[in-house]
Design a protein around this nucleic acid. Sequence first.
RNA 1: GUGCCCGUAGCUCAGCUGGAUAGAGCAUCUGCCUUCUAAGCAGACGGUCGGACGUUCGAAUCGUCUCGGGCACGCCA
Length: 593
Amino acid sequence: MSLYTELREKLFQSLLGMESVETQILQNVVLEQPKDKTHGDLATNAAMVLTKVVGKPPRILAEELVSIFEAWDAVEKASVAGPGFVNISLKNKSVFDDVLSVQDSVEPYLEGAEVGKGTKTIVEYVSINPTGPIHVGHGRNAAFGDAIAKMLEKAGHFVHREYLVNDAGGQIRVLVNSLHARYLQLFGKDIEVPADGYPGDYLIDIAKNLKEKDGDKWLNVSDSEVLLDGLRGFAVEACMDLIRADLAVMGVKFDRFFSELDMHRESDIMARAVAILREKGYIYEGVLPPPKGKEMTDYVPVKLTLFKATACGLGEDQPVYKRNGEPTYFGQDIGYHYDKYLRGFRKMVTVIGADQAGSFTPLAKALSVLTGKDDIYQPVAYEMVKVLRNGEPVRMSKRAGNFVLLKQVLDEVGKDVFRFMMLTVKPTTPLTFDVAKAIEKTMENPVFYVQYAHARLASLERLAAEDLGVRRGEFNEGGEVRDGASEVRGGGAAGGADLDMLPLVGEAGLDVAKTLMMYPQVFEQSVRLLEPHRLVTYAREVAAAVHRWYADVRMLDKDDLEGTRARLELAARARYVLADLLDTCGVAAPERM
RNA sequence: GUGCCCGUAGCUCAGCUGGAUAGAGCAUCUGCCUUCUAAGCAGACGGUCGGACGUUCGAAUCGUCUCGGGCACGCCA
């Protein structure tokens, strides 16, 4: 367990020991780095939060906390400040010991910072219709989904990555018709791709493959049902191959591609889910009012099977079956998510475009009715990606088929740059992706900044071994601790036996250590909020501290091998943390650049 | 008309379960390479946190209203 986590636990325990303090209120208590570093290493608002419950003025309460904190081994000094903050300065040795406890695998260091450890979690992402290749917007989905899945894994969840293949909807019919048109064109027929169809060139290639496989088998078939039956499997597979190829370039892999068609063919799960909802009084046959605010000339009142979303506080009830008896998208979603539930998943993350945000509120309601739990479904809605080329926005229109393909961008900038950039801002912020700037290796490109820090640290280890014959792990043998008191932190060893790291690594090195120390907090928050961009922001902070240190201190010094060894130890920890952060983002951590 | 999201430095954005003097990068200007990677570092400049009211000891953060922008609004997915 890390120092930060330990201190926070001790803080909470101390607070819980006070009269009339309950767990609930502790949610508002934070232990964090003060904005102004002169205030100390950590600060807590506990006194102010608890003042009402305990019935003492905040500053008095803070005074009591000060004496509690100062009794802790790791604390150098604590003091009351402002309206009732308690500022805490840590012993340098505690900070260094904490950071040095980080091992090659960072995960043990994050122990205690987990959120929902042991939860069986499904992360559903990408899930675009199998009707064509992936475009950049979906690339953001893939980047988020993958990072979130990784994060949750590191937090101890049992994570299942799933892609929902929507091969049952009406779009497949459109796809098949478009494909058939391309197919007929290959035989010299004068036929256009349907106006509402898919005009992209990729269907020409797929049509060629079809011709190669089946010859003229479909040349004189015009019955759309026969075509649908005969070609849907081939068309969907061909499109999924395109999609999988693009995902492979990005390094994204799924545990399962879940076929909606199979779900309907092999089970009656949707009907069962609807039956349960009906039992609970949330399904009825009714007529929807005409849509508001939009001219609807062909509105015909029709009786449909509706989910009573209005009973859950929403504006409109939602149809689960179409007039023709087929399930609606919403209806399928209920079935699919109920399936997830029956498969044992108790946390369902779905990464979904903001343009579909309207759909997940009713689904969340339906699921909470279905399962009796209301925090299972956790959609992550992300905003659109706007692509800039030569400073000009690239117009994207699905109709014209000229949306920017993911593969194209990946070819230009590489997956590392793309992934990192997709994650830099929070999901709800629309992202502008400037291809020119992404290619440049400048400060506008934070990927290189972070990777460069990692590469610099890796180089140090390499050069130390090559030029000075100094290797990692020798520091402790240099006489620092021989009496077994190297037990991380709080071992209470007499100070004299320990070598002081500070003169060896410098103030800038101490700053590095203090930055690394906060990883568990940042990690926990990122997981709890499902916001990987926090890790990116933090990675930039770590990199900045590393670069400052590097510029400030002569790292390798043949006349100061002891110091060199000490710096190497710290450098390795910074590198582990950076590598871990990059790993979560799906970005390479290069040894040299 | 309704719902969701956004509005913070010239630009792109962090910060939002309320907390101290609101941060970073870019841009502009000034410095730093005889030594480990200058894809770097140090510094300067830059703000009525869209606006109003409210809750509070305390609001960029919470609530209501408002202005501006994006997205979505029967049996499309």
